[in-house]
């Protein structure tokens, strides 16, 4: 464990707590893409298959459980909670995320560390996570003004993988045999997808203005 990865995990946890706060406090999920949340739930379920077979550390196990439980709780809430589901922007959240599923799965069949069930699904979860934010970013562009908590949520979500990139650089210097090309390249793509969001987030922070994404 290194400081970059720890900060990355904490940033990821903060983003989830912000989303839970928004949904719990405002009983609304306006501006949140259910499709992105469903993709994240799938990312965690396919990545943490080793939850009960490989024990790495208490921290690792606890964080995996928190990520799985929170992502499922958010999806359940957006689908079934009477107040929350009514605020879901169904007509705006129209990204065809099944293509993301298919593309990630096909790529995982081609590119993986080992052709084994758990490894192919692990690679699938890495590729899927890289593109899972797309429905959310498209929804933000369509819904124009972005409420504060939603903006913070997306910001921390993007920042966590950027910190992981520093973690991979650090681990490479510590141990040149440490190569995680799949996670690293996907992490770069994932962070790059946030580039324009980070730009508009920075502008809104500098001008102390509301976060506006161009349509």
């Amino acid at each position: 464990m290194n400081i970059f990865r720890f900060l990355g995990d904490m940033t990821h946890l903060i983003s989830i707590l912000i989303l839970l706060l928004k949904i719990y406090a405002t009983k609304s999920c306006s501006g949140i893409s259910l499709k992105t949340q469903e993709l994240y739930a799938l990312v965690f379920l396919t990545r943490y298959l080793d939850l009960f077979t490989d024990f790495i550390s208490v921290y690792n196990t606890v964080m995996k459980l928190v990520f799985i439980a929170s992502s499922l709780a958010i999806v359940w809430c957006m689908r079934n909670h009477p107040l929350v589901r009514r605020s879901y922007d169904k007509q705006l959240d129209t990204f065809r995320h099944y293509f993301l599923l298919l593309a990630s799965f096909l790529l995982a069949l081609l590119l993986h560390e080992k052709f084994a069930f758990q490894e192919v699904l692990w690679a699938f979860s890495i590729y899927l996570e890289a593109v899972a934010i797309l429905p959310q970013l498209v929804l933000l562009q369509r819904s124009g003004n972005v409420d504060n908590l939603t903006g913070q949520y997306v910001f921390f979500l993007g920042a966590y993988r950027a910190l992981y990139i520093f973690n991979w650089i650090y681990r490479y210097f510590i141990d040149p045999h440490f190569t995680r090309w799949i996670a690293c390249v996907s992490g770069l793509v994932q962070t790059a997808l946030y580039a324009d969001f980070f730009y508009y987030y920075f502008i809104s922070w500098k001008n102390n203005a509301k976060l506006q994404l161009p349509a």
Binding site: D50, I56, S57, F67, E113, K114, W122, Y164, R180
Partner: peptide, 10 residues
């Protein structure tokens, strides 16, 4: 921490 496949990260 290194596991087979090195999946020690979240």
């Amino acid at each position: 921490e290194q596991l087979q496949g090195g999946h020690d990260e979240l």
